[in-house]
């Protein structure tokens, strides 16, 4: 299997973030953790924590509002980059036994056959010479050829999902309600009723950093507390019972996906002249199989998950056998699909 370069890079970045925060725990600067991270008056705030404390305390603190809009700006420019490059939860999940095997199997099925691949990549047309438009009979996503090449299961899903939306103005970036948004609603409702940030109690990000903190305090001051056992236990339970926590539960991701609808930059873009599926009709759906957010960037219209859920993890770009996927600042004209 192809090595996912970005996977390792992300792990390094996340561990770096944990390290910086852990060092910060024991100096007098007060940089805080991901709930509110910064120096002095300049900080980023957990957007969910902000909304929760706003509902619970009914206090609009100018500084917190500024921090919140700083986060909103980051999400607009970089999308849900937090979820792939900062949040420790996906990394913890990757370390769980079995989680990788499942993904590898899915990707192996989605990649083209070994004998088809070398021929396909060798016969790669010169991207400059062949305009992408010439290679397409129809806009991608609705290609009958493509549908025929897909595994039966995907085809079925595609059929049912595509039908009502073909005529609708379904833009690729359209908001799609999923369970996370309902959990977010529940968390905010509960916060408003009971008057304290409810999700913070079980937030796996908070639990991770608190576990690190209490572990450090155990060694530094001999501070013993049940918390040091209970927190990692709750964290493990959350991640074991909800293998797809990020995709099905996380209200923080849900909140950011609402904002990232405005994100137009650094979105994954397929060079159709290079993609072996559009250019040569080879049966390949590796990019969609590798996506942790279930986004089918090849077929955005029928994708189970919309593009605003993209966390810019770059796995699709890494897995693509034709190196056809890039994350340009703004999508260039020549690479436009439809």
């Amino acid at each position: 299997m192809k090595k996912l370069k970005a996977n390792n890079l992300r792990a390094i970045v996340i561990l770096g973030v944990v390290l910086v925060i852990a060092v910060g725990y024991f100096n007098l600067v007060g940089i805080g953790n991901l709930s509110d991270f910064g120096w002095g008056l300049i900080s980023t705030i957990c957007p969910l924590g902000f909304v929760e404390t706003l509902l619970a305390s009914k206090l609009l603190i100018p500084r917190a509002v500024i921090s919140f809009f700083a986060v909103v700006a980051i999400v607009i420019v970089l999308g849900r980059v937090f979820c792939a490059w900062v949040c420790p939860v996906p990394l913890l999940q990757r370390w769980f036994p079995g989680s990788r095997k499942q993904q590898e199997k899915r990707i192996a099925e989605a990649l083209p056959d070994a004998e088809a691949l070398p021929a396909a990549t060798e016969a790669l047309p010169d991207a400059e010479a062949l305009p992408a438009v010439d290679l397409l009979d129809e806009p991608s996503g609705d290609l009958p050829v493509q549908a025929a090449l897909m595994p039966a299961e995907t085809k079925l899903k595609l059929k049912s999902a595509a039908k009502p939306k073909l005529k609708g103005a379904a833009k690729p970036n359209n908001f799609k309600l999923d369970s996370r948004h309902v959990v977010l609603g529940g968390a905010l409702l509960s916060t408003a009723i009971f008057g304290f940030p409810v999700f913070c109690l079980v937030c796996p990000v908070g639990l991770t950093f608190a576990s690190v903190l209490f572990l450090m305090r155990l060694f530094a001051f001999g501070e013993t507390t049940w918390t040091i056992l209970v927190f990692p236990l709750v964290l493990v339970l959350e991640l074991v019972f909800f293998r797809k926590w990020c995709k099905t539960i996380c209200p923080l991701g849900a909140l950011m996906s609402l904002i990232s609808g405005l994100n137009k930059t650094f979105r994954p873009s397929i060079d159709n002249s290079r993609c072996i599926k559009t250019a040569q009709g080879v049966n390949c759906s590796a990019c969609s199989a590798v996506c942790a957010e279930n986004i089918d960037i090849r077929n955005p219209k029928t994708s189970q998950s919309s593009l605003n859920n993209c966390t810019k993890c770059r796995n699709c770009s890494d897995i693509c056998p034709a190196h056809a996927i890039s994350f340009p600042f703004l999508k260039g004209k020549q690479k436009t699909e439809d």
């Binding site: 007060g30 805080g32 953790n33 705030i45 404390t53 619970a56 304290f196 940030p197």
Partner: peptide, 15 residues
């Protein structure tokens, strides 16, 4: 009001 607003960000403790 303290419990309603505290983010558990650790900044007060650190500083």
């Amino acid at each position: 009001s303290f419990l309603g607003a505290c983010l558990r960000c650790e900044r007060c403790r650190e500083i």
